[in-house]
Write a protein that binds this DNA or RNA. Structure first.
Length: 376
RNA sequence: GCAGGGGUGGCCGAGAGGUUAAUGGCAUCAGACUGUAAAUCUGACACGCAACGCGUUACGAAGGUUCGAAUCCUUCCUCCUGCA
C-alpha cells in the first residue's frame, strides 16, 4: 500500500491510496459490507455506483462462514467477487456494540456468539490471523472502542489496553507476513486512536500509536452517542497530529454533514452504516436534505426523489413508487433506496475531491451544508 | 322450522358485573438510526378541548336489573354450524 498526498486546501486533503487491488482516491467513503455484502446491493451495482473500496468485518466473517473457509476459496476478494480494495474492521467495534454478550480481559475478548451462544476469543493475534486469512488490503488493529460516556480513568485504562493490543497486533502481523513495519505485499495495518472525549487522552493514545510507525491511522471511538460538538472537536484536534503523509481514517462517521465537516478537519477516509441502514428504513439523503419516503405526503408525488441526482433510482422511479415499495415491504425498496443513498454519499465525496482539486473546498462546504437544510 | 354458537374501536381478535377508553396482532401516522445482533426500534392511534388533565360518546339495536354492565335479563335485527 502506498499513500500519496496530492494537494491540500486548508486542512482538506486530496490523495491517493494504491493497493494491490487498485487505487483509492481520497477523501473516500467506504460502504460497509459487514458479512461480505453491502446489504441490498450487488457487486455490479457497487461498481456502477463507483465504489472504490468496501468494508468487511472480522467478527462476523469469522463466525460465518469462517475465515478458513474463505481462505480456502481464495480469499475474501475472490469469495465475494470484489476484485477491488477491501478494508476489514478488527472486531473492535463489536467489543462496544456487543457489550451485553462479551467479556474483556488483557488477553482479548470472549464473545458469546449472537448466532448460537457459543464462546469465542477474539484477541489481537486472532484478529490478525483472521484478517490476513481474508486477504484484506487494509487491516485494522484490534482495539477497544471506548463507550461514551466514560470517566477519565475509564478512558485512560481503555486507551492503554488499545495501545498494548496495537503492539501485539503489529507483532502478529509482522510475524505472519514476515515484514517489520505493518506493511506486506498485500496488506497494510492501521492503528486506531482512542481517548474518549478528552483531548489529553487523545494525545496520549496518539503518541503511543505513532511510535509503532504504522502505514495508516484511524480515529476511533467517535459517533458513539456523544454530542456533535465533541465529534468535530476531537477530530479537529487529533487529525493534524497524525502523520501528514499517511492516510487518516475516521471510523464509523457519519452523516453527509459529518463527511464534509471532517474532510475540512483533515480526514481522508470514512465508513458508516448510515446510508445503507437508513435506506432500508426509508430514510433517504438528498441534495435538499433528508427525506422519509414513507411519509404520506409522497403517496401521489410523481417527481423523482432528488431532481439533482443522477443515480439509477432517481433517473427512473418516482417518490410515489418508492413509497409504495416501502409500504408493501418489497425487497426492491431496499435495493433502490440503498442504491440512491450510496450514490449520494459517493457523489458527495467526488464533489469534495473536485473542490479540493480546484482549491474551492471552502466554497463547496458552505454551499453543500446550506443546501442540506432546505425543506424537501 | 328445530338445536347450538356468534355480533367488541379501520381489520382480525382478547375480555364474561367494578384499577376498561377497553390486552394483543395487523393496518395507519410520525420519529429515530453514525467502525451493522437492525428490511430494525420507539411513540401515537374514539371524538373534542386552554390537553402528562378534563369532557363527551362507545363493545349489533332498544329496553331492563344493579350503587356500578362490553360482561346479567327481555325483545328485536343479523351472521355461522348441524338436523329437517
Amino acid at each position: 500500500m502506498k499513500f500519496e498526498l496530492l494537494k491540500t486546501d486548508d486542512n482538506a486533503r486530496l490523495g491517493q491510496i494504491t493497493t494491490s487491488h487498485g487505487i483509492i482516491e481520497t477523501p473516500i467513503f467506504m460502504p460497509v459490507g459487514t458479512v461480505g455484502s453491502v446489504k441490498a446491493l450487488t457487486q455490479e451495482m457497487l461498481e456502477t455506483l463507483g465504489a472504490q473500496i468496501i468494508l468487511g468485518n472480522t467478527y462476523h466473517l469469522y463466525l460465518r462462514p469462517g475465515h478458513e473457509l474463505i481462505a480456502s476459496l481464495g480469499g475474501l476478494h475472490k469469495f465475494i467477487s470484489w476484485p477491488h480494495p477491501i478494508l476489514t474492521d478488527s472486531g473492535g467495534f463489536q467489543v462496544f456494540s456487543l457489550s451485553e454478550i462479551r467479556k474483556t480481559s488483557e488477553e482479548g475478548v470472549i464473545f458469546r456468539s449472537h448466532l448460537d451462544g457459543s464462546k469465542h476469543l477474539l484477541s489481537p493475534e486472532r484478529s490478525m490471523e483472521i484478517q490476513l486469512a481474508l486477504g484484506s488490503d487494509i487491516i485494522m488493529a484490534f482495539d477497544e472502542c471506548t463507550p461514551y460516556p466514560a470517566t477519565l480513568e475509564q478512558v485512560e485504562e481503555s486507551l492503554e489496553l488499545t495501545a498494548r493490543w496495537a503492539r501485539r497486533s503489529l507483532a502478529e502481523f509482522n510475524r505472519r507476513t514476515a515484514s517489520s513495519n505493518g506493511m506486506s505485499e498485500n496488506s497494510a495495518l492501521f492503528g486506531i486512536i482512542q481517548g474518549g472525549m478528552y483531548l489529553k487522552m487523545r494525545q496520549r493514545s496518539l503518541e503511543q500509536l505513532l511510535e509503532l510507525e504504522l502505514p495508516g491511522y484511524a480515529i476511533g471511538g467517535l459517533s458513539v452517542g456523544e454530542e456533535k460538538g465533541y465529534t468535530y472537536d476531537i477530530t479537529e484536534y487529533t487529525a493534524p497530529l497524525l502523520p501528514t503523509h499517511k492516510p487518516r481514517y475516521l471510523m464509523g462517521v457519519g452523516t453527509p454533514e459529518d463527511l464534509v465537516e471532517c474532510v475540512g478537519r483533515g480526514i481522508d477516509m470514512f465508513d458508516c452504516v448510515m446510508p445503507t441502514r437508513n435506506a432500508r428504513n426509508g430514510q433517504l439523503f438528498t441534495s435538499q436534505g433528508k427525506v422519509n419516503i414513507k411519509n404520506a405526503k409522497y403517496a401521489k408525488d410523481d417527481r423523482p426523489l432528488d431532481e439533482n441526482c443522477e443515480c439509477p433510482t432517481c433517473k427512473r422511479y418516482s417518490r410515489a413508487y418508492l413509497r409504495h415499495l416501502y409500504h408493501t415491504g418489497e425487497i426492491l425498496s431496499s435495493i433502490l433506496c440503498t442504491q440512491h443513498n450510496i450514490h449520494f454519499y459517493l457523489d458527495t465525496m467526488k464533489k469534495i475531491r473536485q473542490s479540493i482539486r480546484l482549491g474551492l473546498f471552502k466554497e463547496f462546504r458552505q454551499q453543500y451544508l446550506a443546501s442540506l437544510s432546505r425543506v424537501s
